[in-house]
Amino acid sequence: MQYNPNKSYGYPVQRQSLSEFDKENADYKDTSFDPSFNESKSFDNKDEMQIEIQMFGLIQEIKDAIGKAQANISVIVQCRDTFFSQKQTIEHKDATTNLYQDIMYINANNLYGEVTIRAVVLATKDFILKSEKINAEFGYKEFKVTKDMLLAESPTYISYVHKEPENSPQSIVSLHTTPKFKDGEYDISLENDYIQINISEKLNAKMAPLKNTKEGRELSFNVIFVPAITYALTQLEAHPEYLEYKWAQSLTNALNDLKKTIDVRDEPHNQAQALFRNTILNVLQGEI
């Protein structure tokens, strides 16, 4: 077993084990505590984030302890940017059910950017936990659990909360006129929450009227926004640290949502086209 003095508890705690190596070395051998968190956000009517929680992979002995009210499963949601932390204990009225599920509702106005979600199982009273799956390196197959001991913890799931409409990726782009460029020259800055495209005054004068018609908007998507988003996604792939910024989180959200309904190729230029609903076809096939 790998020992991390700041994370290890000195007794068996069930966690996620993805690889065969992890399973072999887990505190509870050949097991993986792997809950599923499906989140959806609705900003249309009520600013709400819903998290559907399903508990997969808990060993039977911990499930039994939960069924006997010796332990509880709780979900902890936290957001660094808004100083937010909320916990919810999952109801488990039916002790015979193998699958624990619940829904957590959070006011999305209290969240911004990266939101972390994780599940923990904590003892609520003292009892003996016996399991044949306890890794032999502990040297025992049962141990005394005392109140508040952590029995299982999930990996941390990360979600991003932004209210920009996900079907208009241009809302995360800001055009900015600068005298340092001439004609069709421009550059793209990714070092802020918004993708900043710096363009010449001449280009700005040509671009400005385009937003007044549908044809013009499609044209502007193709000539400036799709290339900019392609560039941004390429940079994001190479430098994941950009995920700190709102544009990267918003585009990641939008792509993840899109992938739930259609196939999206992995190349940034195809992802950018998909985000703009294949605007290239709209222009070339005269569909507008």
Partner: peptide
């Protein structure tokens, strides 16, 4: 002012 709005520069 919501915490969400408060992260808008």
């Amino acid at each position: 002012l919501t915490p969400y709005q408060a992260r808008d520069g």
